[in-house]
Write a protein that binds this DNA or RNA. Sequence first.
DNA 1: CCCAATGTTTTGCC
DNA 2: GGGCAAAACATTGG
Length: 276
Amino acid sequence: MPELPEVETVRRGLNDLVLNKQISSVDVYYDKMIIGDVQKFKDTLAGKVIETVDRRGKYLLLRFSGDVTVISHLRMEGKYYVKSKDEPLDKHTHVVFNFVDGTTLRYNDTRKFGRMELVKTGMEVNNSGIKKLGPEPTVDTFKVDDFYQALQKKKKVIKTALLDQTIVTGLGNIYVDEVLWMSKIHPQTPAKNLSYDEAKKLHDNIIKELNMAIEAGGTTIRSYTDAFRNEGGFQFSLKVYQKTGEPCQRCQTPIERIVVGQRGTHFCPKCQILKP
DNA sequence: CCCAATGTTTTGCC
DNA sequence: GGGCAAAACATTGG
């Protein structure tokens, strides 16, 4: 569900829905969702005003008054909703931020994989996950030369290298398959075997693809919705992800599914040749 | 019942 | 200590 475009869409939704609201109290129904002391999490946030919502990679950064930041990662199925305090709790609601105006921000997560952590604003860079993130996939921060050099040093195959967030952040299983298809690169190509031209093509496609997906409001495969409960629109633009057996849109060859790095992987066996 | 699922962290092995 | 691959996390749905 949430790769960078989906997280960015959630961020924008939250910035429309909860800005400048003051927290009266926080309820936590599943303690493991909170990294660190749960009581401190609740006590610190009470009375704080949410000033903005930022994003780094796939991490949301909820900025509160008093230099308080909540790092929130949605992992596989995390979702935020804004509801009136009177509405009954969903079975999978694990954290509720109650606002003084009678509305609530609710964190739902069917698989309970998501995590939140309270830090002093600015200290989020010390978070173990955020610390090792590579550049954001934008023209200003993501440079072809750096990308090529990083790939040269890797022993992993290209798909696994792109998923690990350290070379460039934001890609997940869906968009990796898509950008590799667009770039005509086989997912099991050793990263260091990519030519400079291939690296450049891949680099350009990563930026283009993620931006197009953000414009479409993300991709809804099974469960993703944004903070307004809207589904994304990019699933209609997917070329290979979960298209096993369907004809490649370039050459009509049926799309194949293999497993790479424990992940389902979709590619065109004719367009994306594994070089010896 | 068995398998797969969008992501990161932990574990264990070089 | 780093890099890497596999397991783990918890639940739903086909």
